[in-house]
Write a protein that binds this DNA or RNA. Structure first.
Lengths: 336, 336
DNA sequence: CCCACTTGAATAAACGTTAACCCTGCCAAT
DNA sequence: ATTGGCAGGGTTAACGTTTATTCAAGTGGG
């Protein structure tokens, strides 16, 4: 029912190809017919059928964005950045969230490939050494960029933050603020949390402290795990005077536990989060945090992917580490 | 380069149509060949080319989701709900954010139509009586559902919250808590803010108070406008003892202004927001707010759209108003 | 006046699938 | 022997574009 090039062609008694050429500004067309075609197209309110075009050009100008969950502000921000970056190039993004389920993730990747996306951006939850999903993507020669979570043993493009630097930056800030029994509420058992922990350890030893395992409390990503973890940490003596939390939600949970225990923030315990989520500055005590350049991750990943799509030949896989930045607020503002 | 039905057909010396029929479980195919086809398809790791299928079936199993901005937790939550609701039906969503720019919104709608989406979900920013964009959608017979922001003068499906009820609910709660000089930090000059204001007014008059215009302060959507608005409101005498804020960010800004002025919350001034964004309970003083059933909006809009797409005949346009719910927290917890 | 070249356009074929028919055996009932 | 029906396929023609090739007419030079 919608208007096609055929309709325009018949009206003007020219061939469909002529119409196509005019609309693409290609080939040699006289100014007269060009004008006629354009006018008729406007009159009929012609809209290109991208499905048909994609079938023959083998380009959909569509990229798949695969995220663990996009209600999370971190990923929502990335989605925003990606969408804004690719729009000027004529791309749209198909999103899919897989709720941290590796199987769902793999099946969504297959769906997106079936939809012929020109490229993929993935914050993957695939466990280490399960590379089958990526193999399938590579077989199809579909460019893809990993973000946020690197995958060991995979030669692929990656854009993310330097997580070791986050750990060091946070820990050194606490040291500067005079803390000397620094705890860490660590994240889940994956690469990122591991690296932040590593940065924390290195900063401690570099400044002559000995990392003590009882000050390192296992946890997860959410604020409830932060709450539980902090309560556990408060039971360890001598009590900590500074805590580096895996991320901002964890820090928020920890903050609740500290205040509930009747302790003062930052005077009794200073707190550093990571992520700089948008609301970090309207909390009970505004949270010092490490900014991980969230939107930059999205922008760089999108640009990287687009250049990959544009270049016929496969380029070397490229890894971009964004340097984190400290954002100081009340939760660590105290006299050394 | 990817495997096509043709490849399978040649290998097995059958016709492409036979392969197609097997893969769709249609037509009469013997068990023997069915098995052979399926086996070969698996061996070659065949993936359907959805672009080609869409061209002939005129269905992309794709819906366009158009939002003002999806870094905003409200819209991010809606996106999540929509995506999860449509996935079991085989749909994917193409998102686009238009940064509150009506022209960009219109052009994105056109792009999505050109991409042959099967339906649209839109939280529109079109000014009243600018219906051209919607006309174009209707001409193509593409089903669409408006969410959150109704458009006057348009017979279209709509899913949103009952904003008058939000205003009433919040105001009556403040009255119950013993407030008798109730202010309102209102939102931008659009329908939603108007309705919440209307609910506020009605609740006041219903309880024998006279709405006073100096207690109604104009504003916007963000926390800075909440801060500015509250400072203005504090200059009005006799000073208010309860404020209903257009939304949670505004309330957060207002909270900062109140605390900065050395006033106590909720004892001097009680505060109610609207939206129940995820972090409302980790603020300096946890915020009483009105839950607007965000994810429900996404779910219902998605379901409505899918039934519209499925039904050949055009149905009557349907409007769904979700009843809001009060979520009481510290910011209003005081003795009447 | 013929050849070569250019301009402006038409024609044919493809992209990978599906929809709508058509064909060929085979079997049972007439 | 004819008819009818059905199982198990195959053929043909779309879907709306683009790419590649071909063609007709005009133009300028020798």
């Amino acid at each position: 029912m919608p208007v096609t090039m055929m309709d325009i062609a018949k009206d003007l008694k020219v061939s469909v190809v002529t119409v196509s050429k005019v609309l693409r500004n290609q080939g040699r067309i006289s100014d007269a017919t060009r004008k006629r075609v354009l006018r008729r197209a406007k009159e009929l309110n012609y809209q290109m059928n991208w499905v048909a075009r994609s079938l023959v050009t083998r380009r959909t100008y569509t990229i798949g964005l695969l995220l663990p969950e996009f209600a999370h502000p971190f990923f929502a921000e990335i989605a925003r950045a990606v969408a804004q970056t690719v729009r000027p190039h004529g791309y749209h993004i198909v999103i899919s969230s897989f709720e941290e389920d590796p199987d769902l993730e793999a099946s969504e990747v297959d769906s997106l490939l079936a939809r012929q996306v020109d490229g993929l951006i993935i914050a993957s939850s695939q466990p280490p050494h399960r590379l089958a999903m990526f193999k399938r993507v590579q077989e199809r020669n579909t460019p893809y960029v990993l973000i946020d979570r690197p995958i060991v043993g995979l030669r692929a493009c990656f854009v993310g933050v330097d997580n070791r630097a986050i750990g060091s930056l946070a820990t050194e800030h606490l040291i500067e603020r005079g803390c000397c029994r620094i705890g860490h509420l660590r994240g889940p058992e994956v690469g990122i949390a591991e690296e932040r922990l590593e940065g924390y350890r290195r900063a401690l030893t570099r400044h002559g402290f000995r990392p003590h395992s009882s000050y390192i409390v296992a946890g997860g990503r959410g604020d409830d795990t932060g709450y539980d973890g902090m309560r556990k940490l408060l039971g360890v003596g001598p009590v900590t005077d500074g805590v580096f939390c895996y991320n901002d939600p964890v820090a928020i949970g920890a903050m609740r536990a500290i205040l509930e225990a009747g302790l003062k923030l930052p005077d009794d315990i200073a707190l550093v989060g990571a992520g700089n989520v948008h609301y970090s500055d309207v909390l009970a005590i505004p949270l010092t945090t490490i900014d991980q350049g969230t939107s930059q991750i999205g922008v760089l990943a999108a640009e990287l992917l687009i250049t990959r799509i544009a270049s016929k030949r496969s380029m070397r896989s490229q890894k971009i580490l964004i340097p984190p930045k400290l954002v100081e607020r009340e939760s660590t503002r105290r006299q050394p």
